[in-house]
Amino acid sequence: MINSICKYLFLGFTLMMALSANAASKKTDPYLRPIPVPYPADNVPTAERVELGKKLFFDPRLSGSEWISCATCHNPALSWSDALPTMIGNKMAKGNRSTPTILNTAYNKMQFWDGRAGTLEEQALGPIQAPGEMHQDLDELVKRLTAIEGYRAAFDVAYPDEGISKQTIAKAIASFERSVVSTEAPFDRWRMGDQKALSESAKRGFKLFEGKANCAACHQAFNFADDGFHNIGLPMSGQEDVGRFAHRKVKVNKGAFKTPTLRDIDLTAPYMHNGAYNTLDEVVEHYNKGGVTLDNLDPNMKPLNLNDQEKKDIVAFLKSLTGKPMALVVPILPVR
């Protein structure tokens, strides 16, 4: 008996040592996910807030038509996107930009393809009101939610002194989004020392990604993003979209869009803000050419002269960024 207790103590001790050693090495590797998810001081993501935010995220009654929820477009079964080249919103109207995943948006310093919102709180009220998306009046929404007893109770627990308001709706949704973070992928296991987690092809692909192919000039660190805006010379589609330039009138921003995360990238086709490409092979070919539309091209973009094997290697690496499926319990929405 004592013997086995000692054994457990010893096991626990070694486990602790291993974990703390691991934590230390994690800190130094920019490719591994930082453990704490950043959040604003006035919106600590408590369990109650995350749960309430999840309800709101899945509730179509947030829209004017009572038919479109955030999850209609940011569908968890499609890696929090919609598998469409560009979004479809209110009255089935087609938008001219694609739906990005909400995975790891907690780590973005700017939201949207053009960075027009800073925080997730700021972002959340955008799509609810946008005529092309959920087309809902916010005061109307506050009234609608206040009429539902289940929501009154949930807001009471999550934001005791604040009540149901635009602000608390945004805060709850943001808290939920902060819980949607990437999970461990083969690439991460390889970074932590498991040599077998990655194929030789993917390992070569990563080397190219950081080296000859210059992808890491823009796709950086664990989220493979830089909170930056670049014109990567995509093929033109539909009407001209000036992107970031609409918000910061500096020449380099014309046609520039935010560098998106590459986590779970194999699951979120089609790609790019205008859905220009259907496969990762097409994306890599785009970069190999150094872009297609060369007007105001970001200076980091150049023809890469990759051979077929090198292109395959980069795609193999991109596919190693797919995490384990995230367990998600579908929320029960208060009907009354």
Binding site: G115, D227, G228, R244, R248, V250, V252, D298
Partner: peptide, 8 residues
């Protein structure tokens, strides 16, 4: 003074 590519 800002950087247009990296607004932060």
């Amino acid at each position: 003074v800002e950087c247009a590519i990296h607004p932060q």
